[in-house]
Computed example of a mutant assay.
Amino acid sequence: MGMPDANGQGPPDGLPDLPPEWGRIVVPDDASALAEEAERVRRELRAGHRQATRRRWRSALALPLLVLTVAVLTTLAGLVAVTWPRTDRGGRPTVAGSYDPSTDPVGRPLPALDLVDDAQAPVPLRSLLPAAILLVDACPCPERVAEAVAAAPPGVRVVTVVGGRTVPPAVTGPDVRRLADPAGGLRALLHASPAPGTVGVLLVDRTGTVVRTVPAVGSVEDYRADLAALAG
Protein backbone atom coordinates (compact mmCIF):
# COMPACT_ATOMS: atom_id res chain seq x y z
CA MET A 1 0.00 0.00 0.00
CA GLY A 2 1.01 3.62 -0.40
CA MET A 3 2.92 5.82 1.96
CA PRO A 4 0.83 8.07 4.27
CA ASP A 5 0.75 11.79 3.46
CA ALA A 6 1.57 14.64 5.80
CA ASN A 7 -1.67 14.07 7.67
CA GLY A 8 -0.92 10.43 8.03
CA GLN A 9 -3.29 9.45 5.28
CA GLY A 10 -2.19 7.16 2.51
CA PRO A 11 -3.49 7.12 -1.06
CA PRO A 12 -6.94 5.74 -1.74
CA ASP A 13 -7.15 2.00 -2.15
CA GLY A 14 -6.31 0.80 -5.63
CA LEU A 15 -4.08 3.81 -6.54
CA PRO A 16 -0.30 3.54 -6.89
CA ASP A 17 2.06 5.32 -4.55
CA LEU A 18 2.93 8.93 -5.57
CA PRO A 19 6.46 10.36 -5.38
CA PRO A 20 7.04 11.94 -1.97
CA GLU A 21 8.54 15.07 -3.58
CA TRP A 22 5.09 15.88 -4.97
CA GLY A 23 4.02 16.75 -1.48
CA ARG A 24 0.45 16.68 -0.37
CA ILE A 25 -2.05 16.09 -3.15
CA VAL A 26 -5.41 17.73 -2.60
CA VAL A 27 -8.28 16.83 -4.89
CA PRO A 28 -11.00 19.46 -4.62
CA ASP A 29 -14.64 18.46 -4.48
CA ASP A 30 -15.53 21.13 -7.08
CA ALA A 31 -13.69 20.66 -10.42
CA SER A 32 -14.15 24.38 -11.21
CA ALA A 33 -11.44 25.10 -8.70
CA LEU A 34 -8.97 23.66 -11.17
CA ALA A 35 -10.08 25.93 -14.08
CA GLU A 36 -7.25 28.43 -13.62
CA GLU A 37 -4.65 25.70 -13.44
CA ALA A 38 -6.14 23.98 -16.48
CA GLU A 39 -6.07 27.24 -18.47
CA ARG A 40 -2.42 27.74 -17.61
CA VAL A 41 -1.60 24.22 -18.80
CA ARG A 42 -3.52 24.81 -22.05
CA ARG A 43 -1.58 28.05 -22.66
CA GLU A 44 1.72 26.23 -22.18
CA LEU A 45 0.64 23.47 -24.54
CA ARG A 46 -0.45 26.00 -27.19
CA ALA A 47 2.84 27.90 -26.88
CA GLY A 48 4.80 24.67 -27.25
CA HIS A 49 2.73 23.71 -30.28
CA ARG A 50 3.39 27.07 -31.97
CA GLN A 51 7.13 26.77 -31.37
CA ALA A 52 7.17 23.25 -32.78
CA THR A 53 5.20 24.44 -35.83
CA ARG A 54 7.64 27.30 -36.45
CA ARG A 55 10.57 24.91 -36.20
CA ARG A 56 8.97 22.58 -38.74
CA TRP A 57 8.29 25.48 -41.15
CA ARG A 58 11.86 26.73 -40.85
CA SER A 59 13.19 23.27 -41.63
CA ALA A 60 10.78 22.85 -44.55
CA LEU A 61 11.70 26.25 -46.06
CA ALA A 62 15.47 26.01 -45.62
CA LEU A 63 16.16 23.72 -48.61
CA PRO A 64 13.92 25.56 -51.14
CA LEU A 65 15.45 28.88 -50.09
CA LEU A 66 18.94 27.47 -50.58
CA VAL A 67 18.03 26.15 -54.05
CA LEU A 68 16.45 29.49 -54.98
CA THR A 69 19.53 31.41 -53.81
CA VAL A 70 21.87 29.22 -55.86
CA ALA A 71 19.63 29.62 -58.93
CA VAL A 72 19.57 33.41 -58.59
CA LEU A 73 23.35 33.62 -58.17
CA THR A 74 23.89 31.35 -61.20
CA THR A 75 21.56 33.49 -63.31
CA LEU A 76 23.30 36.69 -62.24
CA ALA A 77 26.70 35.21 -63.08
CA GLY A 78 25.43 34.26 -66.55
CA LEU A 79 24.06 37.75 -67.14
CA VAL A 80 27.36 39.32 -66.12
CA ALA A 81 29.27 37.03 -68.51
CA VAL A 82 26.93 37.89 -71.39
CA THR A 83 26.78 41.65 -70.83
CA TRP A 84 30.43 42.21 -69.86
CA PRO A 85 31.97 44.79 -72.23
CA ARG A 86 34.02 43.22 -74.98
CA THR A 87 35.62 44.32 -78.22
CA ASP A 88 33.13 44.66 -81.08
CA ARG A 89 34.45 42.70 -84.05
CA GLY A 90 32.11 44.57 -86.37
CA GLY A 91 31.29 41.48 -88.41
CA ARG A 92 34.92 40.71 -89.16
CA PRO A 93 35.96 37.14 -90.05
CA THR A 94 37.12 34.72 -87.42
CA VAL A 95 40.60 35.47 -86.12
CA ALA A 96 42.83 33.01 -84.26
CA GLY A 97 44.92 34.56 -81.51
CA SER A 98 45.23 38.28 -80.80
CA TYR A 99 44.61 40.54 -83.77
CA ASP A 100 44.61 44.34 -83.78
CA PRO A 101 43.73 45.65 -87.27
CA SER A 102 45.23 49.04 -86.40
CA THR A 103 48.79 47.66 -86.21
CA ASP A 104 51.21 47.04 -89.05
CA PRO A 105 50.66 43.40 -90.13
CA VAL A 106 54.19 42.92 -91.52
CA GLY A 107 56.10 40.40 -89.44
CA ARG A 108 52.92 39.25 -87.72
CA PRO A 109 50.83 36.10 -88.27
CA LEU A 110 48.10 36.30 -90.86
CA PRO A 111 44.70 36.19 -89.10
CA ALA A 112 42.74 32.98 -89.66
CA LEU A 113 40.35 34.50 -92.19
CA ASP A 114 37.74 32.41 -93.95
CA LEU A 115 36.93 33.65 -97.47
CA VAL A 116 34.41 32.17 -99.93
CA ASP A 117 34.80 30.77 -103.43
CA ASP A 118 32.45 31.10 -106.42
CA ALA A 119 30.28 28.29 -104.95
CA GLN A 120 29.96 30.21 -101.65
CA ALA A 121 31.96 27.53 -99.86
CA PRO A 122 34.26 28.75 -97.06
CA VAL A 123 37.98 28.67 -97.82
CA PRO A 124 40.52 29.11 -94.98
CA LEU A 125 43.07 31.55 -96.33
CA ARG A 126 45.86 29.90 -94.36
CA SER A 127 45.33 26.70 -96.36
CA LEU A 128 46.64 28.45 -99.49
CA LEU A 129 50.04 29.55 -98.19
CA PRO A 130 52.58 30.63 -99.28
CA ALA A 131 50.69 33.11 -101.39
CA ALA A 132 50.64 36.46 -103.13
CA ILE A 133 47.21 37.86 -102.29
CA LEU A 134 46.00 40.51 -104.71
CA LEU A 135 43.06 42.67 -103.64
CA VAL A 136 41.23 43.42 -106.89
CA ASP A 137 38.09 44.91 -105.33
CA ALA A 138 38.82 48.33 -106.89
CA CYS A 139 40.11 47.11 -110.26
CA PRO A 140 40.17 43.70 -112.04
CA CYS A 141 43.50 44.81 -113.54
CA PRO A 142 44.26 41.57 -115.40
CA GLU A 143 47.72 42.84 -116.31
CA ARG A 144 48.68 43.14 -112.62
CA VAL A 145 47.37 39.62 -111.98
CA ALA A 146 49.13 38.18 -115.02
CA GLU A 147 52.52 39.61 -114.10
CA ALA A 148 52.13 38.28 -110.53
CA VAL A 149 51.47 34.82 -111.93
CA ALA A 150 54.51 35.09 -114.19
CA ALA A 151 56.77 36.21 -111.33
CA ALA A 152 55.56 33.77 -108.68
CA PRO A 153 58.03 30.90 -108.07
CA PRO A 154 56.81 27.29 -108.05
CA GLY A 155 54.74 26.47 -104.98
CA VAL A 156 53.58 30.05 -104.40
CA ARG A 157 49.90 30.66 -105.11
CA VAL A 158 48.42 33.79 -106.59
CA VAL A 159 45.08 34.56 -104.94
CA THR A 160 42.77 37.33 -106.12
CA VAL A 161 40.24 38.68 -103.63
CA VAL A 162 37.19 40.89 -104.13
CA GLY A 163 34.81 42.37 -101.60
CA GLY A 164 31.26 41.14 -100.99
CA ARG A 165 30.29 37.54 -101.66
CA THR A 166 30.25 37.35 -105.46
CA VAL A 167 33.39 36.05 -107.14
CA PRO A 168 33.64 37.55 -110.67
CA PRO A 169 34.49 35.45 -113.73
CA ALA A 170 38.15 34.68 -114.31
CA VAL A 171 40.10 37.34 -116.21
CA THR A 172 43.36 35.36 -116.22
CA GLY A 173 44.46 31.74 -116.51
CA PRO A 174 43.65 28.79 -114.21
CA ASP A 175 46.74 29.39 -112.06
CA VAL A 176 44.85 31.99 -110.01
CA ARG A 177 42.63 31.16 -107.05
CA ARG A 178 39.66 33.56 -107.05
CA LEU A 179 37.93 34.31 -103.74
CA ALA A 180 35.66 36.87 -102.09
CA ASP A 181 36.01 38.50 -98.67
CA PRO A 182 32.49 39.31 -97.39
CA ALA A 183 33.70 40.72 -94.08
CA GLY A 184 36.46 42.88 -95.57
CA GLY A 185 39.12 41.48 -93.23
CA LEU A 186 41.97 41.65 -95.77
CA ARG A 187 41.19 45.23 -96.79
CA ALA A 188 41.24 46.22 -93.10
CA LEU A 189 44.56 44.39 -92.67
CA LEU A 190 46.06 46.34 -95.56
CA HIS A 191 45.08 49.69 -93.95
CA ALA A 192 44.01 51.15 -97.30
CA SER A 193 40.60 51.86 -98.81
CA PRO A 194 39.97 50.62 -102.35
CA ALA A 195 41.23 53.21 -104.86
CA PRO A 196 39.91 52.97 -108.43
CA GLY A 197 42.43 51.51 -110.86
CA THR A 198 44.73 50.08 -108.16
CA VAL A 199 45.53 46.63 -106.74
CA GLY A 200 46.68 45.96 -103.19
CA VAL A 201 49.08 43.09 -102.41
CA LEU A 202 49.86 41.04 -99.33
CA LEU A 203 52.69 38.50 -99.42
CA VAL A 204 52.45 35.70 -96.83
CA ASP A 205 55.04 32.94 -96.36
CA ARG A 206 54.37 29.28 -95.64
CA THR A 207 54.51 29.83 -91.85
CA GLY A 208 51.62 32.31 -92.06
CA THR A 209 53.74 35.42 -91.47
CA VAL A 210 52.93 38.55 -93.47
CA VAL A 211 56.16 39.42 -95.30
CA ARG A 212 55.15 42.50 -97.30
CA THR A 213 52.14 44.72 -97.98
CA VAL A 214 51.72 47.10 -100.92
CA PRO A 215 48.50 49.17 -100.69
CA ALA A 216 48.66 50.29 -104.34
CA VAL A 217 50.82 48.35 -106.82
CA GLY A 218 52.39 50.14 -109.78
CA SER A 219 53.87 46.95 -111.21
CA VAL A 220 55.22 43.60 -110.06
CA GLU A 221 58.61 45.24 -109.58
CA ASP A 222 57.21 46.81 -106.39
CA TYR A 223 57.39 43.42 -104.68
CA ARG A 224 59.22 41.00 -107.00
CA ALA A 225 62.13 40.30 -104.62
CA ASP A 226 59.83 39.50 -101.68
CA LEU A 227 57.62 37.36 -103.95
CA ALA A 228 60.60 35.25 -105.01
CA ALA A 229 61.63 34.80 -101.35
CA LEU A 230 58.27 33.20 -100.48
CA ALA A 231 59.43 29.91 -102.01
CA GLY A 232 62.21 29.59 -99.43
Results as ranks from 00 to 15, higher is better:
residue 1 M to P: 13
residue 2 G to W: 06
residue 2 G to R: 10
residue 2 G to F: 06
residue 4 P to T: 10
residue 6 A to E: 07
residue 11 P to G: 10
residue 13 D to H: 09
residue 13 D to S: 11
residue 18 L to M: 11
residue 20 P to L: 15
residue 21 E to C: 09
residue 25 I to E: 03
residue 27 V to W: 04
residue 28 P to Y: 01
residue 28 P to D: 01
residue 29 D to I: 00
residue 29 D to L: 00
residue 29 D to K: 03
residue 40 R to T: 05
residue 45 L to M: 01
residue 46 R to H: 01
residue 47 A to S: 02
residue 51 Q to V: 02
residue 55 R to T: 07
residue 58 R to W: 08
residue 59 S to E: 03
residue 62 A to E: 02
residue 65 L to T: 03
residue 67 V to T: 02
residue 69 T to R: 02
residue 73 L to R: 02
residue 81 A to N: 04
residue 84 W to L: 12
residue 88 D to E: 07
residue 88 D to W: 06
residue 93 P to Y: 00
residue 98 S to L: 14
residue 99 Y to G: 08
residue 104 D to T: 15
residue 104 D to R: 14
residue 105 P to S: 15
residue 106 V to T: 15
residue 114 D to K: 04
residue 115 L to Y: 00
residue 117 D to E: 00
residue 118 D to W: 00
residue 119 A to P: 01
residue 128 L to H: 12
residue 129 L to A: 15
residue 130 P to F: 15
residue 131 A to E: 15
residue 136 V to C: 08
residue 138 A to M: 07
residue 138 A to G: 10
residue 139 C to W: 11
residue 140 P to Y: 01
residue 140 P to R: 04
residue 142 P to N: 13
residue 145 V to L: 03
residue 147 E to S: 13
residue 149 V to F: 12
residue 150 A to E: 15
residue 156 V to G: 10
residue 158 V to K: 05
residue 160 T to A: 13
residue 161 V to W: 09
residue 162 V to F: 07
residue 162 V to E: 07
residue 162 V to P: 08
residue 163 G to Y: 09
residue 167 V to N: 08
residue 170 A to M: 05
residue 170 A to R: 06
residue 172 T to L: 05
residue 175 D to V: 05
residue 177 R to E: 10
residue 181 D to N: 06
residue 182 P to I: 04
residue 182 P to K: 03
residue 186 L to T: 15
residue 188 A to S: 15
residue 188 A to V: 13
residue 191 H to R: 11
residue 193 S to Y: 06
residue 193 S to C: 03
residue 194 P to W: 09
residue 194 P to E: 09
residue 196 P to V: 09
residue 197 G to Q: 12
residue 198 T to F: 06
residue 200 G to N: 05
residue 203 L to T: 02
residue 204 V to N: 10
residue 206 R to N: 15
residue 206 R to V: 15
residue 206 R to M: 14
residue 207 T to R: 10
residue 209 T to P: 13
residue 209 T to H: 12
residue 209 T to D: 13
residue 211 V to L: 04
residue 213 T to P: 04
residue 216 A to S: 10
residue 218 G to V: 07
residue 218 G to L: 08
residue 219 S to I: 08
residue 220 V to F: 06
residue 221 E to P: 00
residue 226 D to M: 05
residue 228 A to V: 13
residue 231 A to C: 07
